[in-house]
């Protein structure tokens, strides 16, 4: 079990109706349905991931999130989760708005582009950061909208979105004291719990 999924699971009520946008192989929903008896639905675009979800009994709908979610009713889910997919969206702001239209709460995780390693990479090499964790080159990366914790929080203020909780971790999803001290410099991944 990925550590971020365990953190997310703590924020989800038993038997909640959960939508996982970009659900991958259905790992989180499978975990949540076993641990918390949630009623889950995943949205996914990758063909192999969809087959994996179906095989493990996770409800999944083939969907390109960039085409919008107009077919899903307002407030039809308790929680809407999006892990590590915000940065690949054409319009991350609209997706966040949609999450909070469809769900009562949103849980978002994304990599922090202001992590010190990224800052040093750009500052001293003068090139777009490439790491083990973010292994793409600038021209082939699916991550087209990187942001930092500060950027995301500014967006939340601008759109009247309330941040209920935030956990900052490293890329292995461990929480360290230095993440709390200087999150936007030291944290690699943020997990936000948001609502309206």
């Amino acid at each position: 079990m990925r550590a971020d999924l365990e953190i997310i699971a703590e924020w989800i009520q038993p038997k909640a109706r959960v939508l996982d946008m970009g659900c991958g192989e259905g790992e989180l929903l499978d975990f949540l349905s076993k641990q918390k008896q949630v009623d889950g639905l995943g949205l996914e675009i990758d063909h192999d991931n969809i087959t994996s979800c179906i095989a493990r009994g996770v409800n999944v709908i083939e969907k390109n999130l960039d085409e919008g979610l107009a077919s899903i009713d307002d407030a039809s889910f308790d929680s809407v989760v999006m892990t590590q997919a915000l940065q690949v969206m054409h319009r991350p702001d609209l997706i966040v708005e949609e999450m909070l239209r469809i769900g009562n709460e949103g849980i978002v995780t994304f990599p922090n582009f202001a992590h010190w390693r990224a800052r040093f990479y750009l500052a001293f090499r003068g090139k777009m950061p490439v790491s083990k964790f973010l292994s793409y080159s600038w021209y082939d990366t699916p991550n087209i909208h990187f942001c930092t914790f500060k950027d995301f929080e500014a967006l939340c203020i601008e759109r009247n979105i309330r941040i209920i909780e935030r956990t900052v971790v490293d890329n292995e999803h461990r929480q360290r004291w230095w993440h709390k001290l200087w999150p936007n410099m030291m944290g690699e991944i943020a997990i936000y719990r948001i609502t309206r």
Binding site: R17, D39, C53, I61, S71
Partner: peptide, 15 residues
């Protein structure tokens, strides 16, 4: 599929 989601049924969809 959308009608089934709105009715809160278990559904998977592949195109």
């Amino acid at each position: 599929t959308d009608a089934l989601v709105a009715a809160n049924k278990d559904v998977s969809y592949a195109e």
